[in-house]
């Protein structure tokens, strides 16, 4: 098993880098997308709220694998239209399509997390903001958002770990992340040990992220 790792060490480290970077990037971008959606979910009523509910239910309701197929292969059906719109470079590339699917998926989950943490902020905090004469925007930016973030940190950390695992699906649309590299090395060697090497990679990566998250959570705990 060791030689399976050492013989292909370049490809393993490339896969590890891709898995780590793509999952981190999609979680961060997903958070930015989720922030307004979660806010709308927790406050607004009417058409905007329905739109947010539709977004969340749609992208949480379908398996990520199907979403990836839909973005990568499904939009390929409209290649001539996309070419005319100048978007073909995006939908032609498995990396971009995979990223888009990951972001759509994680932002739906994160929006629900943000909604939950905004909803659990006690009314006394909001009353205090009013008593201090803070404008709504200042109150949101300086008080509500930091508290909501601190509260949301543990579930957001879980979501991050789920995304690290979810990036393995990218391998199926021909991205060479950890799983993709494992699949190609397996097809060359036909040695099952390859998958065990990949498993150890994932285990170490997830445990390292969990360890880091626990330290970050400890720093924000006083606010939650």
């Amino acid at each position: 098993m060791f030689d399976l790792y050492l013989d292909y060490i370049d490809r393993w480290s490339h896969g590890l880098w891709l898995t780590a970077s793509m999952s981190t990037l999609s979680v961060l971008i997903g958070f930015l997308v989720a922030l307004p959606i979660g806010f709308v979910r927790s406050r607004a009523k009417g058409p905007l709220a329905w739109l947010a509910i539709a977004y969340v239910n749609l992208f949480r309701g379908m398996p990520l694998l199907v979403l990836m197929f839909l973005v990568y292969y499904g939009f390929g059906q409209f290649s001539s239209e996309l070419r005319a719109m100048g978007l073909w470079w995006f939908f032609r590339d498995a990396y971009f399509c995979g990223m888009l699917a990951l972001i759509l998926n994680t932002s739906a989950y994160q929006a629900e997390i943000i909604r939950g943490s905004l909803n659990t902020i006690s009314t006394s905090v909001i009353e205090t903001n009013a008593a201090l004469n803070l404008t709504r925007w200042t109150a949101f930016r300086r008080v509500l958002l930091p508290i909501a973030f601190a509260k949301a940190l543990p579930p957001l950390g879980n979501e991050y770990i789920l995304m690290v695992k979810a990036t393995s699906l990218l391998a199926i649309i021909t991205v060479f992340d950890l799983m993709g590299e494992a699949r190609t090395i397996f097809s060359e060697t036909l040695d099952l040990g390859v998958y065990y090497v990949a498993a150890i990679h994932y285990l170490v990566l997830v445990l390292a992220i969990e360890w880091t998250l626990r330290r970050v959570e400890a720093r924000f705990k006083w606010m939650a």
Binding site: K165, L169, M179, Y195, A199, V206, L207
Partner: peptide, 11 residues
Amino acid sequence: KSLPEILTLLI
């Protein structure tokens, strides 16, 4: 909880 489901499945 750490391994991707698809890897568990393949192994």
